[in-house]
């Protein structure tokens, strides 16, 4: 158990490297502040398909094919794919990769899926069970609205606390050997539920889980906020970010100066009418694969704590009056192989 630190953290003996990333986003994300960081910006959210679900699967397929290609590998070189999405029974992921012939683990962590896939992929590599792993997550605004909320053409008002599901997929190839950035630590989150029931305020539902994982990470590793150039959550949005900041402060850690959120970075709330910010598995996935990875290569940041956050509810659980449990998994991405 030499790799374990504290209650929830593992530190890798030989940290796996991210050797390539790929991202595909929808038209709205392509008009947002991070547009220039994405590999492919779609002009049409259907991408020539005849349903939102098929479009999402195509996005998954093309993004995974692209990331394998960018890593100069062939599909046969990949030992496992770890991937997930928001659709029932993970059909976006499984239908997308059914032609690739690569062993697959399907994951559901709601919007926290990107760090779940990286965590498990890195563990499998450090454990000696794989040389190359693809970690991926996706979401599609239209298929998510259809499954979780209302038909697109319904004339409703979204509350100001609501978020906007990102259309897109982000994928990374993790490798045993590489030149970085490296996955050095993983702090796996536990389910935290402080009783929020409003599915139009998911930031509030997830903030306690994010804060819990961040604080646990500091306690397990003995690190402090000063050890990081950036601490970035997945899709807390403007409301959840405030709350997480306050909750972390209660445990005597001040992360304010290094704290951001992918959901806040990806859209401009004023011109894009996205209210609290972006959300969905794709939100943190494309932000990592595009913005964070490229800026780490530019040495804008050398060590980041990446914490995608998930709201673990279903339309049925909400209708039955259940509260929304949250989860957040943290991954340390470091330019140095510490």
């Amino acid at each position: 158990m030499g790799k374990r630190l504290g209650k929830q953290t593992v530190k890798f003996d030989s940290p796996p490297s991210i050797i390539a990333t790929a991202s595909t986003v929808g038209p709205k994300e392509g008009k947002g502040p991070l547009a220039s960081y994405f590999d492919v910006v779609l002009q049409d959210p259907l991408w020539g398909e005849d349903s939102w679900e098929k479009a999402e699967s195509k996005i998954v397929q093309k993004t995974i094919e692209r990331v394998i290609q960018k890593a100069n590998l062939a599909p046969e070189d990949i030992n496992y794919i770890f991937a997930g999405d928001l659709l029932n029974q993970l059909t976006a992921s499984t239908f997308g990769i059914r032609g690739l012939n690569i062993p697959f683990f399907g994951l559901f962590g709601a919007c926290s899926t990107m760090s779940e896939s990286i965590s498990l992929g890195a563990m499998v590599i450090d454990g000696g069970f794989a040389n190359y792993v693809v970690a991926e997550a996706s979401s599609h605004f239209c298929s998510s609205e259809k499954q979780f909320r209302f038909p697109l053409e319904l004339g409703t008002q979204r509350p100001l606390t609501a978020s906007w599901t990102v259309t897109g997929s982000g994928a990374v190839v993790l490798a045993k050997n590489g030149t970085g950035p490296y996955i050095t630590h993983v702090t796996t989150g536990k389910i935290v539920d402080l009783g929020i029931k409003d599915p139009m305020n998911m930031g509030a539902a997830m903030a306690p889980a994010a804060a819990d994982t961040i604080v646990t990470h500091f306690q397990d590793t003995g690190r402090t906020p000063n050890d990081y150039d950036l601490i970035i959550t997945g899709d807390l949005g403007s409301v959840g970010k405030e709350l997480a900041l306050e909750l972390v402060k209660k445990s005597n850690y001040d992360i304010e100066n290094v704290f951001s959120d992918c959901g806040i970075e990806i859209f401009d709330p004023v011109t894009q009418d996205t209210h609290a910010g972006g959300s969905g598995c794709g939100c943190s996935a494309v932000t990592l694969a595009g913005y964070l990875y490229k800026e780490m290569q530019n040495n804008k940041w050398n060590r980041i704590l990446f914490i995608p956050t998930g709201a673990l509810m279903s339309p049925g659980s909400t209708q039955q009056g259940e509260s929304i449990p949250g989860i957040a998994h943290a991954v340390v991405i470091d330019n140095q192989r510490v």
């Binding site: 053409e153 004339g155 008002q157």
Partner: peptide
């Protein structure tokens, strides 16, 4: 109609046009 609804809220949901919208939007979806 969805843009009208986003702007007007109950103003376009309550009249019978809103009922039509509520029937047809899931039919399309």
């Amino acid at each position: 109609y969805d843009s009208i609804g986003k702007y007007a809220g109950a103003g376009s949901i309550v009249p019978i046009t809103g009922f039509a919208n509520a029937m047809v939007s899931p039919a399309i979806e």
